[in-house]
Design a protein around this nucleic acid. Structure first.
Lengths: 254, 254
DNA sequence: AAGCTAGGTGTACGTTGTACACGGTTCTAG
DNA sequence: CTAGAACCGTGTACAACGTACACCTAGCTT
């Protein structure tokens, strides 16, 4: 990626485009392209996001999209930021409620747009709406006397967990869409696989299976999030840290 | 995917192939193909795993690979299980040490093979080595009197966190490889982006930036893992659960 | 010795993102 | 009021991908 490409991507996301007045009136627009791409992605997954496919749903030719979007990569940038724009801003309040709300919103977003988790995120130009969401999550832990780098660490820890659960959820959704077979039905059909799940090879898994552990699965998101927040509480509310916090609060003049 | 394809994939992973004696001697072998593919993926990322590219590094034609591997999807299955085979088995001992060891091994694996995190995992046929690793992690929490489904939830919570951190790490590695620019240098070059990071728009982030929070980042893996384990400790060692555990232990006769 | 089996090769097809050239439309400068 | 610049949408073309298929040949089995 060249410097010029970067700057273009930044302008695309952060600056409202001036809407040129010359030339013929545009039958298409950037927002319509992004909207159409979102619809395609939600319904059919990442691999359905092809320039041809998006153009087709809009009733235009493939190349017409390039008049409104520099390329596919930038289209993805715009889609991602549009999705973040749908999340409700984290309200002020106790840190635990705030982080729970933040995690819940991200989780809701991932469930609505599982394709997001199949995209590479690094070096993707961050958009204003995604940044705003992150900023608001940081605000939730602002008053606890944490060091600046600790605030970042706390919020990203929650983010990483949600990303992790989200990814396995996204994979599941994708698989169900592609095969038309529910997760449960699929595993039921794996007879050839089950034969190899012997107590000698996988003692714990067979034991858990036999005692019905897989028949009452625990909500992965809720359970894991509660643990993560418990862990953060230990850190945030530790007496030692609370004492240090006095100093930090004075030094950083928050 | 058809049933026959599934069964074939299962046999491929779980049953040693019989090595036919008819026909010309094979100059190539499945393990050599997998090995070569791993080397390519480690060095150049997922998108470099093309049948042509792998064949080329072996000095054979593209189509020769299909004599040893049914297709690309199955090749990926084999690569993933090979990577899991490199992890050290979680030893017996206190649950916290065990889970920490498990997380550490998975983390090491992801760092050595970041391409794993770019692959869709669901409906990918699980291999014996991956399952063995998971089974051993379960064994670590076997003696705590947890309900079977709780054991699964505890281990997957750790797994989800590692997946989450791993993903952002993998993205970073991928970006650095592709652009030849380090993460730090890349952000430094984002002047066009920084201009938009104003205190009105992103109050917390600019504050953290100004107080040097981004200059001393906290190890995301270590910090987050410690919090997750703290949270699990709260759950595992809660008095209420300890009392129930007596009953569970009696019922399941573990 | 005959024949089946399996390994490696070469060609070919449909899909992908997008570069490039082209023609038509509409605002703006003179 | 008119020339021309700017911009929109289209069509063609190309390289890279996975892999189906037909082919020749080597070597074990009968």
């Amino acid at each position: 990626m060249k410097q010029s490409d970067r700057d273009r991507a930044v302008r695309l996301l952060w600056e409202p485009q001036p809407e040129s007045s010359r030339g013929p009136k545009a039958a298409l627009s950037q927002s319509r392209v992004v909207e159409a791409a979102l619809k395609v992605a939600d319904a059919e997954g990442v691999e359905a996001i092809t320039m041809r496919r998006v153009a087709e749903t809009l009733g235009f030719t493939t190349m017409s999209l390039y008049r409104h979007v520099p390329g596919k990569s930038e289209l993805l940038d715009l889609m991602v930021d549009a999705a973040w724009g749908e999340t409700a801003p984290t309200p002020a309040g106790p840190w635990r409620d705030g982080l729970e709300h933040y995690a819940g919103e991200v989780w809701r977003m991932y469930r609505a747009h599982p394709w997001m988790l199949q995209l590479t995120t690094s070096r993707r130009t961050p958009g204003p709406r995604a940044m705003a969401a992150f900023d608001r999550a940081l605000a939730v832990v602002a008053e606890l006397g944490l060091k600046p780098e600790e605030m970042v660490a706390v919020v990203t820890a929650v983010g990483h967990f949600v990303d992790g659960v989200g990814r396995t959820m996204a994979d599941r959704v994708k698989a169900e869409r592609e095969t038309g077979v529910s997760e449960e039905a699929w595993w039921d059909g794996q007879d050839a696989l089950w034969e190899h799940f012997t107590p000698e090879r996988l003692p714990m898994m067979t034991h858990i299976w036999n005692t019905g552990g897989y028949e009452r699965p625990i909500g992965e998101f809720e359970f894991g999030l509660a643990r993560v927040l418990d862990g953060l509480a230990v850190f945030i509310e530790s007496e030692e840290r609370q004492r240090e916090a006095q100093v930090v609060r004075r030094e950083t003049c928050l």
